[in-house]
Amino acid sequence: MVTGKNPAASKSFGLAICNALKIRKFSKNILMVVAPIDFEDVELYAPKTLLEINGANVTVASTTTTALGLNGSTCTTDIMISDAKATDYDGIVIVGGTGVIGSLWDDKDLRNLLKDADKEKKMIAAICAAPPILARAGLLKNRKATMFPWSDGIKELTKNGANYVDQEVVVSGNIVTGRNPDASVAFGLKLCEELKILGN
């Protein structure tokens, strides 16, 4: 018997049902990276839920033990970015929001982590204001990418060799980028598809 408390418990309720039916297989380990403050809530929770429902084990990283969302959510993080190792994960996903600009665009630990993941051809993804992090790490040269349609951010992509396209979600090799909060579900589904876990 599985029961749930209220609408806020919907995700936990759904996952409990999946566990009771023994249909969740943790076949992939994913690291989701958030800014310590002002990450975009839906860009974390929608893809994270889709990944978990389809059998991925998600770890959340930041530069603090607690991260605060733009829309009021509080996320307890699992690991510091500086302690994360690319070899431990099948994919790295960077959540957007205005907070990434000041805190993660130039984070050296994150940049090195991404470079290590790219060398191993791991899936690397970013949404909204986060794709310039990939560009500054040198991962988007001669690749198509999207992001929030903001001129300063787009300049960061193009000056680092990326080909900006205004699409909801863009896949270029092992890189997945998403446009904005409205693309969060499509972005999450594409991550599952690229990881070959969609429908697990």
Rank of each mutant, 00 (worst) to 15 (best):
A9F: 13
A9L: 00
A9S: 06
S10K: 12
S10Y: 07
K11F: 15
G14I: 09
G14D: 01
L15V: 07
A16Q: 13
A16K: 10
I17A: 12
N19F: 03
A20V: 13
A20T: 09
A20S: 12
L21I: 08
L21P: 09
I23G: 08
I23K: 09
N29G: 07
I30E: 08
I30S: 04
M32C: 07
A35N: 06
A35S: 11
I37R: 13
D38F: 14
F39C: 06
E40Q: 13
D41E: 10
V42W: 00
P47K: 00
P47M: 04
K48Q: 15
T49Y: 11
N57H: 02
V58P: 02
V60M: 09
A61D: 10
A61T: 04
S62W: 03
T63D: 08
T64D: 07
T65R: 10
T65W: 08
T66P: 01
L70G: 15
N71R: 15
N71K: 14
G72D: 08
S73T: 14
T76N: 11
D78F: 02
M80S: 04
M80Y: 15
M80I: 12
D83I: 02
K85A: 05
D90Q: 01
I92E: 11
G96S: 10
I101D: 05
G102Y: 07
S103P: 05
D106I: 03
D106R: 11
D107C: 15
D107Y: 05
K108C: 02
D109P: 06
L110K: 10
L110N: 09
L110A: 09
L110H: 12
R111F: 01
N112W: 09
D116P: 13
A117S: 12
A117K: 09
A117H: 09
D118Y: 14
K119V: 03
K119L: 13
K122S: 03
M123C: 07
I124K: 02
A125S: 10
A125Q: 08
I127H: 00
I127P: 00
I127K: 08
I133T: 03
A135V: 04
R136Q: 13
A137H: 04
K141H: 10
N142W: 02
R143Y: 03
R143V: 04
K144E: 15
P149F: 14
D152R: 06
D152E: 10
G153V: 10
L157P: 06
T158Y: 05
K159T: 12
G161W: 00
A162W: 01
N163G: 00
N163Y: 06
V165Q: 12
D166P: 02
Q167F: 04
E168D: 11
V169T: 13
V170P: 04
V170A: 14
V171W: 00
I175M: 13
V176Q: 07
G178V: 02
G178F: 00
A183M: 03
A183T: 11
G188L: 04
G188R: 00
L189H: 03
C192T: 01
C192G: 08
I197R: 11
L198E: 06
L198G: 01
G199Q: 11
